Computed example of a mutant assay.
Amino acid sequence: MDEALLDHKLKEYLQANKQNFEEYLLNQAVNVREKIDDILKVGDIDLINNAHNLIHLIIDGNEQDKLSAFSRQEGIAWATFSLTLSFKLEWIQAIRRTMWAFIQKYNNEVQLIAIDDFFELEKQINNQIDYFLNEFFINYSTYKDALISSQRKEVEALSVPIIPITPTICILPLIGSVDTYRTNIMEGKILNEIGRLHIQTLIMDLSGISKMEIEVIDHLMKIIYGTSMMGCDTVITGLRPDVVRQMIQLGIKFDQETKTYATLQQALNQYLIK
């Protein structure tokens, strides 16, 4: 049988048995079946409709560009809404099994497929499904990595919020836990912002810090030294008693140029209220 004619007749058969196909597919994908409504609500992804679209693209072996675009669309959608990959894999494999079950029914009910046509059909369908899965995972991974990188940059920006209060004075309120990774971000951003904004005084408020390791204290001192090298005075406010005790035990002390105040309000009164 002509390949195009076989593809056409097979699509007609699947369309005529659409409801039975969907029921069979849902029985094959037990875990996904319970999540179909949730996936539709979360990501506006209609798994049933997308399954029919995928099947038509798979049967049309010459629709590679459309199949590639569809896999990209699906990969980005699943990455955007952080949907479970195991559900996607189960769903595609269920589609594969369902297709072959209905091809068998088509062969039994409608027309006998010649052995050569069958092997060509097997190659076409399985290769297309494998191609879709490969492209899906590549697009998912690529978009997810870009999304994580973008989110990390946003978090990094929020974790070191340098706030200008005059053309030459800025505040850096630090909140939460400060570890080595965060101090590395601080160092780069502080030095860059001093150069970009021509900051002359940086008020660093530490009252909101919940935890600070010894290595972090040492790194913080180096950052303060770096700001001094760039012509910026550092003012420290809100030092907690436990941090001060650690500094005393380690023999760490601020240089004479670094001023300290008990609270941020005291520093603002000193530098802003004349």
Results as ranks from 00 to 15, higher is better:
residue 4 A to T: 15
residue 5 L to A: 11
residue 6 L to E: 04
residue 11 K to R: 11
residue 23 E to N: 13
residue 24 Y to A: 11
residue 33 R to K: 12
residue 41 K to T: 11
residue 44 D to I: 13
residue 49 N to E: 14
residue 50 N to T: 08
residue 51 A to N: 00
residue 59 I to G: 06
residue 60 D to P: 06
residue 61 G to L: 12
residue 62 N to R: 13
residue 62 N to I: 09
residue 69 A to I: 07
residue 70 F to D: 04
residue 74 E to P: 09
residue 76 I to Q: 00
residue 79 A to W: 02
residue 81 F to R: 10
residue 82 S to D: 13
residue 83 L to D: 10
residue 84 T to N: 13
residue 85 L to P: 03
residue 88 K to A: 09
residue 90 E to M: 02
residue 90 E to V: 09
residue 98 T to L: 00
residue 98 T to F: 05
residue 102 F to T: 06
residue 103 I to Y: 03
residue 105 K to E: 08
residue 107 N to C: 10
residue 110 V to R: 12
residue 112 L to V: 13
residue 115 I to Y: 13
residue 117 D to G: 07
residue 118 F to L: 14
residue 120 E to K: 15
residue 121 L to P: 02
residue 125 I to K: 07
residue 133 L to H: 04
residue 137 F to G: 14
residue 137 F to Q: 14
residue 138 I to R: 15
residue 139 N to R: 05
residue 141 S to E: 14
residue 148 I to T: 10
residue 149 S to L: 12
residue 151 Q to D: 04
residue 151 Q to P: 00
residue 157 A to S: 10
residue 157 A to V: 03
residue 160 V to H: 04
residue 166 T to E: 05
residue 167 P to Y: 00
residue 168 T to K: 04
residue 174 L to V: 14
residue 178 V to F: 06
residue 180 T to L: 03
residue 183 T to I: 13
residue 186 M to T: 05
residue 189 K to P: 06
residue 189 K to W: 05
residue 190 I to V: 10
residue 192 N to M: 10
residue 198 H to P: 05
residue 204 M to A: 04
residue 204 M to C: 10
residue 207 S to Y: 09
residue 208 G to R: 10
residue 209 I to T: 00
residue 210 S to E: 02
residue 211 K to E: 06
residue 213 E to D: 11
residue 224 I to S: 01
residue 226 G to A: 12
residue 229 M to Y: 08
residue 233 D to G: 06
residue 236 I to S: 03
residue 238 G to T: 04
residue 244 V to N: 05
residue 247 M to F: 02
residue 248 I to C: 03
residue 254 F to I: 07
residue 261 Y to L: 12
residue 262 A to I: 15
residue 263 T to K: 09
residue 264 L to S: 01
residue 268 L to C: 09
residue 268 L to R: 08
residue 269 N to K: 13
residue 271 Y to L: 13
residue 274 K to W: 00
